[in-house]
Design a protein around this nucleic acid. Structure first.
Length: 497
RNA sequence: GCCGCUGUAGCUCAGUAGGUUAGAGCGCCUGAUUGUGGAUCAGGAGGUCCCUUGUUCGAAUCAAGGCAGCGGUACCA
Protein backbone atom coordinates (compact mmCIF):
# COMPACT_ATOMS: atom_id res chain seq x y z
CA UNK A 1 0.00 0.00 0.00
CA UNK A 2 1.28 3.39 -0.92
CA UNK A 3 -0.31 5.40 1.86
CA UNK A 4 0.90 3.67 4.91
CA UNK A 5 0.70 6.52 7.31
CA UNK A 6 -2.79 7.47 8.39
CA UNK A 7 -6.49 7.71 7.82
CA UNK A 8 -7.81 4.24 7.67
CA UNK A 9 -11.25 4.49 6.08
CA UNK A 10 -14.01 4.00 8.61
CA UNK A 11 -17.52 3.77 7.29
CA UNK A 12 -20.10 5.70 9.23
CA UNK A 13 -22.59 3.40 10.90
CA UNK A 14 -25.80 4.66 9.38
CA UNK A 15 -28.94 3.63 7.59
CA UNK A 16 -30.02 4.88 4.18
CA UNK A 17 -32.78 7.43 4.58
CA UNK A 18 -36.31 6.16 4.73
CA UNK A 19 -35.26 2.76 6.06
CA UNK A 20 -35.56 1.56 9.63
CA UNK A 21 -34.40 -1.21 11.93
CA UNK A 22 -36.95 -3.12 13.94
CA UNK A 23 -35.90 -4.84 17.13
CA UNK A 24 -37.07 -7.02 19.94
CA UNK A 25 -40.60 -6.61 21.16
CA UNK A 26 -41.66 -4.74 18.04
CA UNK A 27 -40.53 -7.60 15.81
CA UNK A 28 -42.61 -9.96 17.92
CA UNK A 29 -45.65 -7.71 17.90
CA UNK A 30 -45.50 -7.21 14.14
CA UNK A 31 -45.17 -10.93 13.58
CA UNK A 32 -48.18 -11.61 15.77
CA UNK A 33 -50.14 -9.00 13.88
CA UNK A 34 -49.25 -10.50 10.52
CA UNK A 35 -50.23 -13.92 11.80
CA UNK A 36 -53.63 -12.61 12.75
CA UNK A 37 -54.28 -11.20 9.32
CA UNK A 38 -52.89 -14.26 7.56
CA UNK A 39 -55.17 -16.34 9.71
CA UNK A 40 -58.21 -14.45 8.43
CA UNK A 41 -57.11 -14.69 4.80
CA UNK A 42 -56.44 -18.36 5.29
CA UNK A 43 -59.88 -18.94 6.77
CA UNK A 44 -61.42 -17.44 3.65
CA UNK A 45 -59.60 -20.09 1.64
CA UNK A 46 -56.85 -18.02 0.09
CA UNK A 47 -53.60 -19.89 -0.55
CA UNK A 48 -50.21 -18.48 0.44
CA UNK A 49 -47.74 -17.44 -2.25
CA UNK A 50 -44.22 -16.11 -1.96
CA UNK A 51 -42.37 -14.43 -4.78
CA UNK A 52 -38.88 -12.88 -4.85
CA UNK A 53 -38.15 -9.27 -4.02
CA UNK A 54 -36.67 -8.72 -7.49
CA UNK A 55 -38.52 -8.91 -10.76
CA UNK A 56 -37.57 -7.95 -14.26
CA UNK A 57 -38.50 -4.34 -14.57
CA UNK A 58 -40.64 -4.80 -17.66
CA UNK A 59 -42.68 -7.42 -15.80
CA UNK A 60 -43.43 -5.01 -12.98
CA UNK A 61 -45.17 -2.44 -15.08
CA UNK A 62 -44.80 0.81 -16.81
CA UNK A 63 -41.87 2.09 -14.83
CA UNK A 64 -39.15 1.25 -17.25
CA UNK A 65 -35.93 2.82 -16.11
CA UNK A 66 -34.89 5.55 -18.45
CA UNK A 67 -31.34 6.58 -18.92
CA UNK A 68 -31.62 9.78 -16.92
CA UNK A 69 -33.35 8.41 -13.87
CA UNK A 70 -33.21 4.62 -13.75
CA UNK A 71 -34.35 4.70 -10.13
CA UNK A 72 -37.29 7.06 -10.31
CA UNK A 73 -40.00 5.53 -8.19
CA UNK A 74 -38.49 2.07 -8.10
CA UNK A 75 -35.08 0.75 -7.12
CA UNK A 76 -33.52 -0.80 -10.17
CA UNK A 77 -30.29 -2.53 -11.06
CA UNK A 78 -28.85 -4.23 -14.09
CA UNK A 79 -28.19 -7.97 -14.27
CA UNK A 80 -24.94 -9.32 -15.84
CA UNK A 81 -26.80 -9.72 -19.11
CA UNK A 82 -27.77 -6.03 -18.94
CA UNK A 83 -31.43 -6.73 -18.26
CA UNK A 84 -33.04 -4.34 -15.81
CA UNK A 85 -34.40 -5.74 -12.58
CA UNK A 86 -36.31 -3.85 -9.92
CA UNK A 87 -37.35 -4.33 -6.34
CA UNK A 88 -41.10 -4.91 -6.28
CA UNK A 89 -43.12 -1.83 -5.38
CA UNK A 90 -46.26 -3.79 -4.51
CA UNK A 91 -47.44 -7.39 -4.40
CA UNK A 92 -49.99 -7.09 -7.17
CA UNK A 93 -47.59 -6.77 -10.09
CA UNK A 94 -45.69 -9.93 -9.10
CA UNK A 95 -49.04 -11.69 -8.75
CA UNK A 96 -50.00 -10.72 -12.27
CA UNK A 97 -46.67 -12.07 -13.49
CA UNK A 98 -47.12 -15.31 -11.55
CA UNK A 99 -50.63 -15.87 -12.83
CA UNK A 100 -49.66 -15.17 -16.42
CA UNK A 101 -46.67 -17.48 -16.16
CA UNK A 102 -48.53 -20.39 -14.57
CA UNK A 103 -51.99 -19.75 -15.88
CA UNK A 104 -52.77 -23.17 -17.31
CA UNK A 105 -51.83 -25.06 -14.16
CA UNK A 106 -53.67 -22.85 -11.68
CA UNK A 107 -57.17 -23.42 -10.36
CA UNK A 108 -59.53 -20.74 -11.63
CA UNK A 109 -60.51 -18.53 -9.97
CA UNK A 110 -57.05 -18.28 -8.43
CA UNK A 111 -57.02 -17.05 -4.85
CA UNK A 112 -53.79 -16.25 -3.06
CA UNK A 113 -52.50 -14.17 -0.17
CA UNK A 114 -49.01 -12.83 0.27
CA UNK A 115 -47.16 -10.66 2.73
CA UNK A 116 -43.73 -9.14 2.57
CA UNK A 117 -41.67 -6.02 2.16
CA UNK A 118 -42.04 -3.77 -0.85
CA UNK A 119 -39.85 -0.82 -1.84
CA UNK A 120 -40.54 2.58 -3.31
CA UNK A 121 -37.88 5.10 -4.12
CA UNK A 122 -39.73 8.21 -3.01
CA UNK A 123 -39.29 10.98 -0.53
CA UNK A 124 -39.86 9.53 2.94
CA UNK A 125 -42.17 11.33 5.32
CA UNK A 126 -43.45 10.83 8.84
CA UNK A 127 -44.63 7.24 9.05
CA UNK A 128 -43.70 6.78 5.43
CA UNK A 129 -40.67 4.70 4.52
CA UNK A 130 -38.94 3.45 1.40
CA UNK A 131 -39.42 -0.12 2.55
CA UNK A 132 -42.67 -1.23 4.08
CA UNK A 133 -44.70 -4.36 4.48
CA UNK A 134 -47.96 -5.17 2.79
CA UNK A 135 -50.27 -8.10 3.18
CA UNK A 136 -52.52 -8.80 0.21
CA UNK A 137 -55.28 -11.14 -0.84
CA UNK A 138 -56.47 -11.37 -4.44
CA UNK A 139 -58.97 -13.33 -6.46
CA UNK A 140 -58.06 -13.69 -10.13
CA UNK A 141 -60.59 -14.85 -12.68
CA UNK A 142 -63.85 -13.89 -10.96
CA UNK A 143 -66.42 -11.45 -12.40
CA UNK A 144 -67.44 -8.28 -10.54
CA UNK A 145 -69.73 -8.76 -7.56
CA UNK A 146 -69.30 -11.47 -4.98
CA UNK A 147 -65.49 -11.60 -5.19
CA UNK A 148 -65.24 -7.86 -4.54
CA UNK A 149 -67.85 -7.95 -1.80
CA UNK A 150 -66.06 -10.81 -0.11
CA UNK A 151 -62.84 -8.76 0.09
CA UNK A 152 -64.66 -5.86 1.70
CA UNK A 153 -66.11 -8.16 4.32
CA UNK A 154 -62.78 -9.86 4.86
CA UNK A 155 -61.14 -6.47 5.34
CA UNK A 156 -63.63 -5.72 8.09
CA UNK A 157 -62.97 -9.12 9.64
CA UNK A 158 -59.22 -8.46 9.65
CA UNK A 159 -59.52 -5.17 11.47
CA UNK A 160 -61.76 -6.73 14.07
CA UNK A 161 -59.41 -9.69 14.45
CA UNK A 162 -56.71 -7.16 15.31
CA UNK A 163 -58.82 -5.74 18.10
CA UNK A 164 -60.21 -2.66 16.37
CA UNK A 165 -63.74 -2.37 17.67
CA UNK A 166 -66.75 -2.13 15.40
CA UNK A 167 -67.33 1.55 14.85
CA UNK A 168 -63.60 2.24 14.99
CA UNK A 169 -63.20 1.60 11.30
CA UNK A 170 -65.19 1.68 8.09
CA UNK A 171 -64.67 0.12 4.67
CA UNK A 172 -65.52 2.79 2.11
CA UNK A 173 -66.62 1.55 -1.27
CA UNK A 174 -66.92 3.23 -4.63
CA UNK A 175 -66.77 2.28 -8.30
CA UNK A 176 -64.45 3.69 -10.93
CA UNK A 177 -67.26 3.49 -13.43
CA UNK A 178 -69.17 6.08 -11.44
CA UNK A 179 -66.17 8.37 -11.49
CA UNK A 180 -65.93 7.99 -15.25
CA UNK A 181 -69.62 8.78 -15.52
CA UNK A 182 -69.27 11.82 -13.28
CA UNK A 183 -66.45 13.10 -15.47
CA UNK A 184 -68.52 12.50 -18.58
CA UNK A 185 -71.34 14.54 -17.00
CA UNK A 186 -69.10 17.58 -16.92
CA UNK A 187 -67.84 17.01 -20.42
CA UNK A 188 -64.53 15.32 -19.68
CA UNK A 189 -64.47 12.34 -21.94
CA UNK A 190 -60.79 12.27 -22.77
CA UNK A 191 -58.84 9.07 -22.42
CA UNK A 192 -56.66 7.86 -19.59
CA UNK A 193 -54.02 10.53 -19.98
CA UNK A 194 -56.23 13.52 -20.55
CA UNK A 195 -54.46 15.95 -18.21
CA UNK A 196 -57.66 17.65 -17.16
CA UNK A 197 -59.20 14.30 -16.24
CA UNK A 198 -56.19 13.47 -14.07
CA UNK A 199 -56.29 16.87 -12.38
CA UNK A 200 -59.97 16.51 -11.58
CA UNK A 201 -59.52 12.99 -10.18
CA UNK A 202 -56.60 14.09 -8.04
CA UNK A 203 -58.61 16.98 -6.70
CA UNK A 204 -61.51 14.65 -5.88
CA UNK A 205 -59.15 12.34 -4.03
CA UNK A 206 -58.13 15.15 -1.70
CA UNK A 207 -61.57 15.85 -0.28
CA UNK A 208 -60.80 14.23 3.05
CA UNK A 209 -57.61 16.22 3.54
CA UNK A 210 -58.36 19.63 2.06
CA UNK A 211 -62.10 19.78 2.56
CA UNK A 212 -64.67 21.23 0.17
CA UNK A 213 -63.03 24.64 -0.04
CA UNK A 214 -59.66 23.19 -1.02
CA UNK A 215 -61.15 20.86 -3.59
CA UNK A 216 -63.21 23.67 -5.04
CA UNK A 217 -60.02 25.67 -5.62
CA UNK A 218 -58.24 22.70 -7.17
CA UNK A 219 -61.15 22.06 -9.50
CA UNK A 220 -61.23 25.72 -10.46
CA UNK A 221 -58.36 28.21 -10.59
CA UNK A 222 -55.83 26.40 -8.40
CA UNK A 223 -54.72 26.49 -4.80
CA UNK A 224 -51.88 28.06 -2.88
CA UNK A 225 -50.80 26.04 0.16
CA UNK A 226 -49.51 27.36 3.46
CA UNK A 227 -45.89 27.23 2.36
CA UNK A 228 -46.80 29.50 -0.52
CA UNK A 229 -46.51 26.84 -3.17
CA UNK A 230 -49.12 26.99 -5.90
CA UNK A 231 -50.91 24.00 -7.40
CA UNK A 232 -52.54 24.55 -10.75
CA UNK A 233 -56.26 23.79 -10.89
CA UNK A 234 -58.44 22.03 -13.44
CA UNK A 235 -60.07 25.22 -14.62
CA UNK A 236 -63.66 24.01 -14.41
CA UNK A 237 -66.53 26.50 -14.34
CA UNK A 238 -68.74 26.87 -11.29
CA UNK A 239 -71.57 24.75 -12.65
CA UNK A 240 -69.21 21.83 -13.29
CA UNK A 241 -67.57 22.22 -9.87
CA UNK A 242 -71.00 22.11 -8.23
CA UNK A 243 -71.77 18.91 -10.08
CA UNK A 244 -68.52 17.29 -8.99
CA UNK A 245 -69.02 18.25 -5.38
CA UNK A 246 -72.61 17.04 -5.43
CA UNK A 247 -71.36 13.70 -6.72
CA UNK A 248 -68.67 13.49 -4.04
CA UNK A 249 -71.23 14.29 -1.37
CA UNK A 250 -73.76 11.69 -2.47
CA UNK A 251 -72.74 9.27 0.28
CA UNK A 252 -74.35 8.86 3.67
CA UNK A 253 -77.38 7.10 5.03
CA UNK A 254 -78.34 3.66 3.83
CA UNK A 255 -76.95 2.03 0.71
CA UNK A 256 -80.31 2.45 -0.99
CA UNK A 257 -80.37 6.15 -0.30
CA UNK A 258 -76.83 6.61 -1.57
CA UNK A 259 -77.51 4.57 -4.67
CA UNK A 260 -80.63 6.61 -5.37
CA UNK A 261 -78.68 9.86 -5.16
CA UNK A 262 -75.95 8.44 -7.38
CA UNK A 263 -78.57 7.27 -9.83
CA UNK A 264 -79.85 10.81 -10.08
CA UNK A 265 -76.34 12.16 -10.58
CA UNK A 266 -74.82 9.75 -13.09
CA UNK A 267 -77.37 6.98 -13.69
CA UNK A 268 -78.36 8.43 -17.04
CA UNK A 269 -75.14 7.28 -18.62
CA UNK A 270 -74.57 3.67 -19.47
CA UNK A 271 -71.25 3.47 -17.65
CA UNK A 272 -72.83 5.09 -14.59
CA UNK A 273 -75.75 2.66 -14.55
CA UNK A 274 -73.30 -0.23 -14.82
CA UNK A 275 -71.32 1.00 -11.82
CA UNK A 276 -74.49 1.49 -9.81
CA UNK A 277 -75.60 -2.04 -10.61
CA UNK A 278 -72.30 -3.47 -9.42
CA UNK A 279 -72.56 -1.53 -6.19
CA UNK A 280 -76.18 -2.57 -5.70
CA UNK A 281 -75.26 -6.21 -6.17
CA UNK A 282 -72.52 -5.86 -3.55
CA UNK A 283 -74.78 -3.99 -1.16
CA UNK A 284 -77.29 -6.83 -1.30
CA UNK A 285 -74.55 -9.29 -0.39
CA UNK A 286 -73.44 -7.14 2.55
CA UNK A 287 -77.00 -6.99 3.80
CA UNK A 288 -77.44 -10.74 3.41
CA UNK A 289 -74.22 -11.40 5.31
CA UNK A 290 -75.09 -8.94 8.05
CA UNK A 291 -72.45 -6.30 7.29
CA UNK A 292 -74.27 -3.04 7.88
CA UNK A 293 -73.32 0.48 6.77
CA UNK A 294 -71.49 0.91 10.07
CA UNK A 295 -68.89 -1.48 8.64
CA UNK A 296 -69.08 -1.08 4.87
CA UNK A 297 -70.37 2.15 3.38
CA UNK A 298 -70.67 3.42 -0.16
CA UNK A 299 -68.70 6.64 -0.50
CA UNK A 300 -68.37 8.34 -3.89
CA UNK A 301 -65.33 10.34 -2.76
CA UNK A 302 -63.07 7.27 -2.77
CA UNK A 303 -60.76 7.46 -5.79
CA UNK A 304 -57.81 5.13 -5.00
CA UNK A 305 -54.89 6.14 -7.15
CA UNK A 306 -55.48 6.70 -10.77
CA UNK A 307 -54.24 3.79 -12.62
CA UNK A 308 -55.28 0.26 -13.09
CA UNK A 309 -58.58 0.03 -11.26
CA UNK A 310 -61.55 -0.67 -13.48
CA UNK A 311 -64.54 -1.31 -11.22
CA UNK A 312 -65.27 -1.42 -7.51
CA UNK A 313 -62.61 0.27 -5.36
CA UNK A 314 -62.52 0.40 -1.59
CA UNK A 315 -60.49 1.67 1.33
CA UNK A 316 -60.18 0.51 4.90
CA UNK A 317 -60.19 3.56 7.10
CA UNK A 318 -59.70 3.88 10.83
CA UNK A 319 -62.13 6.40 12.20
CA UNK A 320 -60.99 6.68 15.78
CA UNK A 321 -58.59 9.36 16.87
CA UNK A 322 -55.73 9.30 19.34
CA UNK A 323 -53.35 11.72 20.92
CA UNK A 324 -49.62 11.53 20.44
CA UNK A 325 -47.17 11.97 23.27
CA UNK A 326 -47.09 15.72 22.80
CA UNK A 327 -50.85 15.95 22.79
CA UNK A 328 -51.30 16.31 19.04
CA UNK A 329 -54.42 14.81 17.58
CA UNK A 330 -53.60 11.92 15.27
CA UNK A 331 -55.99 10.61 12.65
CA UNK A 332 -54.93 7.36 11.15
CA UNK A 333 -57.03 7.38 8.03
CA UNK A 334 -56.56 4.76 5.39
CA UNK A 335 -54.70 1.61 6.39
CA UNK A 336 -55.42 -0.41 3.29
CA UNK A 337 -57.43 -0.65 0.18
CA UNK A 338 -58.06 -2.45 -3.01
CA UNK A 339 -60.30 -2.90 -5.94
CA UNK A 340 -60.90 -4.50 -9.25
CA UNK A 341 -58.24 -4.45 -11.94
CA UNK A 342 -59.32 -6.26 -15.04
CA UNK A 343 -56.37 -5.29 -17.21
CA UNK A 344 -53.25 -6.34 -15.32
CA UNK A 345 -52.83 -9.90 -16.43
CA UNK A 346 -53.76 -8.91 -19.95
CA UNK A 347 -50.43 -7.10 -20.14
CA UNK A 348 -48.80 -10.51 -20.33
CA UNK A 349 -51.37 -12.72 -21.96
CA UNK A 350 -53.30 -10.43 -24.23
CA UNK A 351 -56.56 -11.81 -22.96
CA UNK A 352 -58.58 -9.91 -20.40
CA UNK A 353 -58.55 -11.72 -17.05
CA UNK A 354 -60.64 -10.06 -14.36
CA UNK A 355 -59.14 -9.75 -10.90
CA UNK A 356 -59.80 -8.05 -7.61
CA UNK A 357 -57.63 -7.61 -4.55
CA UNK A 358 -57.12 -6.07 -1.16
CA UNK A 359 -53.96 -4.86 0.53
CA UNK A 360 -53.24 -3.87 4.13
CA UNK A 361 -50.38 -1.55 5.06
CA UNK A 362 -48.74 -3.18 8.03
CA UNK A 363 -46.71 -0.41 9.67
CA UNK A 364 -49.55 2.09 9.59
CA UNK A 365 -51.84 -0.44 11.14
CA UNK A 366 -49.23 -1.20 13.74
CA UNK A 367 -48.87 2.46 14.66
CA UNK A 368 -52.63 2.68 15.00
CA UNK A 369 -52.86 -0.43 17.15
CA UNK A 370 -50.13 0.93 19.35
CA UNK A 371 -52.07 4.13 19.89
CA UNK A 372 -55.19 2.10 20.59
CA UNK A 373 -53.33 0.01 23.14
CA UNK A 374 -54.10 -3.08 21.11
CA UNK A 375 -50.53 -4.21 20.55
CA UNK A 376 -50.15 -7.54 22.24
CA UNK A 377 -47.36 -7.04 24.71
CA UNK A 378 -46.17 -10.60 24.72
CA UNK A 379 -45.57 -10.94 28.44
CA UNK A 380 -42.92 -13.50 29.15
CA UNK A 381 -40.92 -12.53 26.09
CA UNK A 382 -37.87 -11.69 28.18
CA UNK A 383 -35.81 -14.63 29.33
CA UNK A 384 -34.99 -15.66 32.87
CA UNK A 385 -31.35 -14.76 33.48
CA UNK A 386 -29.08 -17.16 35.33
CA UNK A 387 -26.27 -15.14 36.91
CA UNK A 388 -22.70 -16.37 36.83
CA UNK A 389 -21.57 -15.96 40.43
CA UNK A 390 -18.60 -18.31 40.23
CA UNK A 391 -17.12 -18.85 36.84
CA UNK A 392 -15.72 -22.26 37.77
CA UNK A 393 -19.26 -23.53 38.33
CA UNK A 394 -20.47 -22.67 34.86
CA UNK A 395 -21.60 -26.27 34.45
CA UNK A 396 -24.10 -25.88 37.28
CA UNK A 397 -25.56 -22.77 35.65
CA UNK A 398 -25.83 -24.55 32.34
CA UNK A 399 -27.79 -27.30 34.05
CA UNK A 400 -30.20 -24.78 35.60
CA UNK A 401 -30.84 -23.07 32.30
CA UNK A 402 -31.40 -26.47 30.67
CA UNK A 403 -33.98 -27.41 33.30
CA UNK A 404 -35.86 -24.15 32.78
CA UNK A 405 -35.82 -24.59 29.02
CA UNK A 406 -37.04 -28.16 29.34
CA UNK A 407 -39.99 -26.71 31.25
CA UNK A 408 -40.66 -24.32 28.37
CA UNK A 409 -39.24 -21.28 30.11
CA UNK A 410 -37.03 -18.98 28.10
CA UNK A 411 -33.73 -18.89 29.99
CA UNK A 412 -30.22 -17.67 29.35
CA UNK A 413 -26.94 -17.64 31.20
CA UNK A 414 -25.11 -14.34 31.46
CA UNK A 415 -22.41 -14.64 28.82
CA UNK A 416 -20.45 -11.50 29.57
CA UNK A 417 -17.35 -11.01 31.62
CA UNK A 418 -18.59 -8.56 34.23
CA UNK A 419 -19.46 -8.83 37.91
CA UNK A 420 -22.76 -9.37 39.63
CA UNK A 421 -23.74 -5.75 39.67
CA UNK A 422 -23.35 -5.47 35.91
CA UNK A 423 -25.20 -8.75 35.50
CA UNK A 424 -28.17 -7.36 37.41
CA UNK A 425 -28.14 -4.29 35.23
CA UNK A 426 -28.08 -6.55 32.22
CA UNK A 427 -31.09 -8.51 33.44
CA UNK A 428 -32.90 -5.24 34.10
CA UNK A 429 -32.18 -3.89 30.67
CA UNK A 430 -33.36 -7.11 29.08
CA UNK A 431 -36.65 -6.76 30.90
CA UNK A 432 -36.21 -10.08 32.68
CA UNK A 433 -38.79 -10.86 35.34
CA UNK A 434 -36.64 -13.31 37.25
CA UNK A 435 -32.94 -13.69 38.03
CA UNK A 436 -31.50 -16.95 39.31
CA UNK A 437 -28.50 -16.76 41.66
CA UNK A 438 -26.38 -19.51 43.10
CA UNK A 439 -23.22 -18.44 44.89
CA UNK A 440 -21.14 -20.13 47.50
CA UNK A 441 -23.72 -19.58 50.25
CA UNK A 442 -26.63 -21.05 48.31
CA UNK A 443 -24.55 -23.96 47.12
CA UNK A 444 -23.64 -24.80 50.68
CA UNK A 445 -27.30 -24.93 51.63
CA UNK A 446 -28.44 -26.73 48.51
CA UNK A 447 -30.52 -23.70 47.48
CA UNK A 448 -30.84 -21.11 44.76
CA UNK A 449 -31.94 -17.50 45.20
CA UNK A 450 -34.66 -16.21 42.90
CA UNK A 451 -35.04 -12.47 42.53
CA UNK A 452 -38.33 -11.03 41.34
CA UNK A 453 -37.24 -8.01 39.37
CA UNK A 454 -40.74 -6.72 38.80
CA UNK A 455 -41.60 -6.82 42.49
CA UNK A 456 -38.23 -5.28 43.24
CA UNK A 457 -38.96 -2.39 40.95
CA UNK A 458 -42.32 -1.86 42.59
CA UNK A 459 -40.73 -1.80 46.03
CA UNK A 460 -37.99 0.55 44.97
CA UNK A 461 -40.50 3.32 44.51
CA UNK A 462 -41.25 3.09 48.24
CA UNK A 463 -37.63 3.23 49.24
CA UNK A 464 -36.62 6.65 50.40
CA UNK A 465 -33.46 6.18 52.38
CA UNK A 466 -30.14 4.65 51.60
CA UNK A 467 -30.37 2.13 54.44
CA UNK A 468 -33.42 0.43 53.05
CA UNK A 469 -31.87 0.31 49.64
CA UNK A 470 -28.74 -1.39 50.95
CA UNK A 471 -30.58 -4.12 52.74
CA UNK A 472 -32.64 -4.57 49.62
CA UNK A 473 -32.88 -8.31 49.26
CA UNK A 474 -36.61 -7.81 49.71
CA UNK A 475 -37.87 -9.13 46.43
CA UNK A 476 -35.98 -12.39 46.48
CA UNK A 477 -36.61 -15.82 47.88
CA UNK A 478 -34.49 -18.91 48.47
CA UNK A 479 -35.76 -22.24 47.22
CA UNK A 480 -34.27 -25.71 47.27
CA UNK A 481 -32.13 -26.40 44.27
CA UNK A 482 -34.53 -29.06 43.00
CA UNK A 483 -37.45 -26.64 43.24
CA UNK A 484 -35.85 -24.20 40.82
CA UNK A 485 -38.39 -24.65 38.05
CA UNK A 486 -41.40 -24.51 40.34
CA UNK A 487 -40.08 -21.40 42.03
CA UNK A 488 -39.41 -19.58 38.78
CA UNK A 489 -42.82 -20.56 37.49
CA UNK A 490 -44.61 -19.12 40.48
CA UNK A 491 -42.84 -15.79 40.12
CA UNK A 492 -43.59 -15.68 36.41
CA UNK A 493 -47.24 -16.38 37.13
CA UNK A 494 -47.41 -13.61 39.67
CA UNK A 495 -45.75 -11.22 37.23
CA UNK A 496 -48.06 -12.14 34.37
CA UNK A 497 -51.23 -11.55 36.37
C1' G B 1 -39.49 18.49 -7.85
C1' C B 2 -41.23 23.26 -5.41
C1' C B 3 -41.77 26.44 -0.81
C1' G B 4 -40.44 27.25 4.26
C1' C B 5 -37.79 26.15 8.78
C1' U B 6 -33.68 23.93 11.32
C1' G B 7 -28.45 21.91 11.89
C1' U B 8 -24.24 22.67 19.19
C1' A B 9 -22.58 15.83 23.59
C1' G B 10 -25.90 9.23 22.46
C1' C B 11 -31.04 12.06 23.13
C1' U B 12 -33.78 16.89 24.09
C1' C B 13 -32.01 21.56 23.89
C1' A B 14 -29.47 26.45 26.19
C1' G B 15 -25.62 29.49 24.42
C1' U B 16 -25.23 36.77 19.45
C1' A B 17 -23.80 44.06 20.88
C1' G B 18 -18.32 38.22 17.34
C1' G B 19 -13.79 37.70 22.80
C1' U B 20 -10.24 32.99 27.55
C1' U B 21 -11.07 26.34 29.01
C1' A B 22 -18.70 25.74 24.73
C1' G B 23 -23.08 24.42 28.90
C1' A B 24 -27.76 21.94 31.21
C1' G B 25 -31.22 17.88 31.79
C1' C B 26 -31.74 12.89 30.54
C1' G B 27 -28.75 8.66 29.19
C1' C B 28 -23.87 6.21 29.73
C1' C B 29 -19.44 4.75 32.94
C1' U B 30 -17.17 4.57 38.05
C1' G B 31 -17.59 4.74 43.36
C1' A B 32 -20.47 4.89 48.10
C1' U B 33 -22.56 -1.18 48.12
C1' U B 34 -15.24 -6.94 48.35
C1' G B 35 -22.75 -11.19 45.97
C1' U B 36 -27.48 -7.68 43.72
C1' G B 37 -30.88 -3.76 38.75
C1' G B 38 -34.56 0.26 39.97
C1' A B 39 -34.20 5.41 44.77
C1' U B 40 -30.15 8.86 46.63
C1' C B 41 -25.29 11.10 46.72
C1' A B 42 -20.31 11.97 44.70
C1' G B 43 -17.17 11.72 40.59
C1' G B 44 -16.07 10.70 35.26
C1' A B 45 -16.12 9.93 30.00
C1' G B 46 -18.24 11.99 25.82
C1' G B 47 -18.01 17.77 21.06
C1' U B 48 -14.25 18.55 13.49
C1' C B 49 -20.47 23.72 17.59
C1' C B 50 -23.10 20.04 9.61
C1' C B 51 -19.18 21.08 5.54
C1' U B 52 -16.32 24.57 2.52
C1' U B 53 -14.84 29.34 1.44
C1' G B 54 -14.85 34.26 3.01
C1' U B 55 -15.04 38.86 6.49
C1' U B 56 -12.19 39.73 11.13
C1' C B 57 -6.63 40.56 15.51
C1' G B 58 -10.37 36.82 16.86
C1' A B 59 -16.24 32.99 14.22
C1' A B 60 -20.65 28.05 17.37
C1' U B 61 -22.11 33.38 16.63
C1' C B 62 -21.53 37.43 10.56
C1' A B 63 -21.71 36.40 4.77
C1' A B 64 -21.88 33.18 0.43
C1' G B 65 -22.19 28.36 -1.48
C1' G B 66 -22.97 23.28 -0.46
C1' C B 67 -24.91 19.07 2.30
C1' A B 68 -28.33 16.93 5.71
C1' G B 69 -32.81 16.77 8.59
C1' C B 70 -37.83 18.39 9.53
C1' G B 71 -42.62 20.49 7.91
C1' G B 72 -45.89 21.69 3.87
C1' U B 73 -46.98 20.80 -1.25
C1' A B 74 -46.64 17.95 -5.87
C1' C B 75 -46.09 12.92 -7.58
C1' C B 76 -47.30 7.99 -5.74
C1' A B 77 -48.12 1.82 -9.54
Amino acid sequence: MVEKKKKQFRPKARLPKGLIDVYGAEVRALARMLDRVRGVYDLYGFEPLETPALEYTDALGKFLPDVDRPNAGVFSLQDDDDQWMSLRYDLTAPLARFVAQNYDALPKPFRRYQSGPVWRNEKPGPGRYRQFTQIDADTVGAPPGAADAELCMMAADCLEALGIPRGGYVIRLNNRKLLDAALAEIGITGGEDDPQRLTVLRAMDKLDRLGETGVRLLLGPGRKDESGDFTAGAGLDDAAIDKVLAFLGAGGGSADETLARLGAAVGGLEIGAEGINELRMMAELFAAAGYGPDRIAIDPSIVRGLDYYTGPVFEAELTFEARSEDGQLIRFGSVGGGGRYDGLVARFKGVQIPATGFSLGVSRLYAALEALGKVETGAGDAPVIVLVMDREHMGRYLAMAAELRAAGIRAEIYMGASGVRAQMKYADKRGAAVVVMEGEDERGRGEVTLKDLVLGAEKSSEITDNEAWRSGAAAQIAVKRDELVAGVKSILQRTAS
